[in-house]
Amino acid sequence: MAVSLRGLTKVFGPGTSRSKVAVNRLSLDVPHGAFYGLVGRNGAGKTTALSMLTGLLRPTEGRAMVSGIDVWGQSRQARHAMGVLPDGMTFFERLSGRQLVTYAGLLRGMDRDTVAQRTDDLLRAMDLTNDGGTAVQDYSAGMRKKIMLAAAMVHAPGLLVLDEPFEAVDPVSAANIRELLQDFARAGGTVIVSSHVMDLVQRMCDHVAVVDDGRLLAAGTVDQVRGSQSLEDTFVELVGGRTQVGEGLTWLSPR
């Protein structure tokens, strides 16, 4: 398995009155070469779970393994096996785009020529060649996502963990990146993306896991999970909580 999570649990503020279980005994297997979608509502625990997988957040309980390596035991090896696009994080934004990707490569101990070569390729793939010398703080939200994605890929990892990779990315770039990721998966790489855009997941991923309230509701191939319906309908059914649109806000109409 490329990734296996066993009873992964995160409790924020344990033992206090504001104690909150963000991820609740989550177990999940991601096979090698899978393009895995992780879907859930806002606040379902997707980002918390992925942070525990990528070594950014220590689990309260449970284990996370990447290709058999324990993320919290042999963290250095596990980190080299992954490329990560975290959500809600910003990297060093006073660096230029090219500098940021170079920095990520050099931090991983790569040699200068390889880093320079791959940085050029990645900037081209992300349509950022002309902005390579501009400080990341002057980038738009979509450009930031793309440069962070490039920084996650520069060391050619076997596993990509991407938290909301397409948020704010323009459709052309998104299509390019999607194709790139699909080629990567076809060649045996493993991709995990989190999203709440069901259409995208249904079209792009071959596997999907549905998370709500910190728990795993369903997991498997996209076809297994959705059955004969669309993924969006299955998701809404699983998660529930649809308000009766149209009755609630009758006053919300022009004129």
């Binding site: 990528t54 070594g55 250095r76 934004e93």
Partner: peptide, 11 residues
């Protein structure tokens, strides 16, 4: 938050 990059790269 930039410190996350140092953790992710396992420096």
């Amino acid at each position: 938050k930039g410190f996350a990059l140092h953790i992710l790269t396992g420096v």
